[in-house]
Write a protein that binds this DNA or RNA. Structure first.
Lengths: 216, 216
DNA sequence: GTCTATATGTAGATAGAC
DNA sequence: GTCTATCTACATATAGAC
């Protein structure tokens, strides 16, 4: 197939550089506001204020509140899945595949990104919302489940004698624990204050999930 | 202090039996609607429709949307904590205190209630919302944290050589896993369909959490 | 593409009849 | 205590000027 304009008949010109920057600002603002206030609690006006743009611009680039939410979730889902699968591939290439290493490949990328850039901590809250609300099941199925399946297969191969339902259950528990860690920087600190040694918490998470899975 | 009317100067009469039934219906409806649509997604009109009462009645008994939410969460928090603490006391009375038994005392009551009566499954979704949103931190602190502290002390005593931060982290992970199990009857089923053997899932949860905690 | 003004619906809350 | 009618505010969305 050639790259003639016929491939994208609806869009007559490529968006200008200026327009792309505006759209990125809109999505950044949507991500921030949605992650803090949730889909129903957030308003287009909140997002407009956060982006420093007029209300109409949010609609122009977002295409309505629900489409905007979808786009904000979808934007980082692909890169996240790629990182996870790359980490898993690295573990398999190294040869010594263990439950702990597979779970590390799953958890570390998101954790590292959240450490490097706060926008990923924001995104983690968004993912937690999508994970918790049955209303967004289609988004989950489209953007997150494929990678989950790959990891489930890997874990099943490592635990051939464990019933699949137990593996699935413990993997769901592990995902919820990861999201709990990423979204509640202060939830652990509510009970035990102290220096924020998040890296130590990641090691707690991996040991917890790997130990729990192996206990089956 | 005596039980003179001076103790409750604002309320001149005890509410009638009819009024108490109405209030219970209002709280039941609020619990259902809030648990499905969340605080922001739910409307007073939704709750009125669910209760079969006019809109004004919801305000009269609820005292505004936010107070109504608080009441719905608070209503079952006490009984739940009592069940958990009673189960813990039973374990201690039996003499053989283990991590697995302590976690069972924490998880089983909520799970059993959810099995017996669907309203507790509804309530679990409400608790998950309260647990996930920093907006409701005060509700958590008032209604859930006291029992958490008791269980944390018990676990700390069982694991004297483990840093407290690790114990707190793994307990937070365990709570999130319990809520994931209670709120997502279909989340596990999304990957592995089959007979709904929830009791088997509870055993998975306990083994997972106990194994993960002991792995530290 | 960007921004203003506005149309239309519905939210939470309340005053007052019954 | 219960229910109706209504007030005020703000939501999403869009039409059209620039």
């Amino acid at each position: 197939m050639s790259e003639t304009p016929a491939d994208t008949p609806k869009r007559q010109r490529a968006p200008s550089k200026r327009a792309l920057q505006t759209k990125a600002r809109v999505l950044d603002a949507a991500e921030t506001v949605f992650s803090i206030k949730g889909f129903d609690g957030a308003t287009i006006r909140d997002i407009a204020a956060e982006a420093g743009e007029p209300v109409g611009t949010i609609h122009h680039h977002g295409g309505g509140k629900e489409r905007l939410y979808h786009q904000a979730v979808a934007r980082r889902a692909g890169p996240l899945a790629e990182r996870r699968l790359a980490a898993l591939a690295a573990v398999k290439a190294a040869g010594d595949v263990t439950i702990e290493r597979v779970l590390t490949a799953f958890c570390s990328p998101f954790f590292d990104l959240a450490q490097e850039d706060p926008v990923w901590r924001c995104y983690a809250r968004l993912v937690a919302q999508v994970s918790a609300d049955s209303r967004w099941r289609e988004i989950r199925a489209a953007h997150f489940d494929p990678a989950f399946e790959v990891f489930l297969e890997e874990l099943s191969a490592l635990l051939p004698d464990v019933p699949r339902r137990h593996i699935v259950a413990t993997f769901v528990f592990s995902v919820s624990a990861l999201l709990a860690l990423l979204t509640s920087r202060d939830r652990i600190g509510e009970f035990e204050a102290g220096d924020i040694q998040d890296t130590e918490d990641l090691r707690s998470l991996i040991r917890f999930c790997a130990g729990g899975m192996a206990a089956g």
